[in-house]
């Protein structure tokens, strides 16, 4: 496509348990039943990037998510932030990253044509960072991961700065492509009340999971190979000693304590 044609962008998002609200039961397990969930924090950066690219270049942004009806809450937030439409892949089945990315890729293929898929660097619950690059592999598209800055080129390609551990790599790929963005890339906008109200009028298309299953002659869908056997609270056995006197008192008590700990 030429650089001037409107861009068709898809942003993938996950409706995930809000870890800061997650409570622990007496046996040290998380109380997941009825736990508060919201759009995975870093996915808001992905939505923001999609919407801001659209605002610069023109085009449409589709929010794509997979899960139960609860996911609509996150989808509506994405629509309020400026996505134009959404696709919900209905599934109550447990899927691992491989299976999730497979069905997301099938959904993208059904929604085609498209130019750019945006994921976040990782979900706030597991922080695997797998779905983005897996999606690219299923779709056989170029992948640029850990993007901290995007720049549209006139020739139908996207230039990206990648935040790697030791360096920043500047790379470029033609559309269609898949990217994952780091949280430093932008500050997600807060939708206005009007935008939140308007979001409810935007279309949400549903793709039942079964409708995305491979047809005869196609390779079988991957089964979830990874399972979670048990989840337990991390023990942080800290001393939690508080000094609340005058700054001078507290300072000298702290120094005493640190000396006896042998860390000074």
């Amino acid at each position: 496509m030429s650089g001037k044609a409107p861009l068709r962008i898809i942003v993938c998002l996950k409706h995930a348990v809000d870890e800061s609200e997650l409570r622990v039961d007496a046996s040290g397990h998380p109380i997941l039943q009825g736990a508060q969930a919201r759009m995975s924090a870093f996915d808001r950066n992905a939505v923001e990037e999609g919407v801001s690219i659209k605002e610069k270049a023109g085009g449409t942004v589709t929010a794509l998510s997979l899960g139960t009806e609860d996911v609509r809450k996150s989808i509506k937030e994405a629509l309020a932030m400026g996505c134009d439409r959404a696709i919900l892949v209905n599934s109550s089945k447990y899927l691992d990253a491989l299976a999730t990315s497979y069905y997301l890729a099938r959904a993208v293929q059904r929604a085609a044509p498209y130019d750019l898929m945006i994921c976040s660097e990782g979900a706030s619950d597991t922080y695997d960072g797998l779905v983005g690059p897996m999606l690219a592999q299923w779709l056989d598209l170029p992948f640029m991961g850990y993007v901290r800055r995007t720049e549209l080129r006139g020739d139908g390609s996207l230039q990206c700065e990648l935040a790697m551990e030791e360096s920043v790599e500047v790379v470029e790929a033609r559309f269609p492509s898949v990217i994952s963005v780091v949280s430093e890339i932008n500050s997600p906008r807060y939708p206005t009340l009007l935008q939140i109200m308007q979001a409810s009028k935007k279309p949400i298309e549903e793709f039942p999971l079964d409708s995305l299953a491979p047809g005869p002659g196609e390779a079988a869908a991957p089964e979830a190979a990874v399972r979670v056997l048990d989840t337990t609270a991390q023990s942080m056995s800290r001393k939690k000693i508080l000094f609340e006197g005058s700054p001078e008192e507290s300072a000298s008590k702290l120094l005493e304590a640190l000396k006896s700990e042998g860390v000074l």
Partner: peptide, 16 residues
């Protein structure tokens, strides 16, 4: 998992 608030024991079928 959950930003380090919990540990999960996870398993995968082999090979992996």
């Amino acid at each position: 998992v959950f930003a380090g608030k919990f540990n999960a024991k996870v398993a995968s079928v082999l090979p992996c």
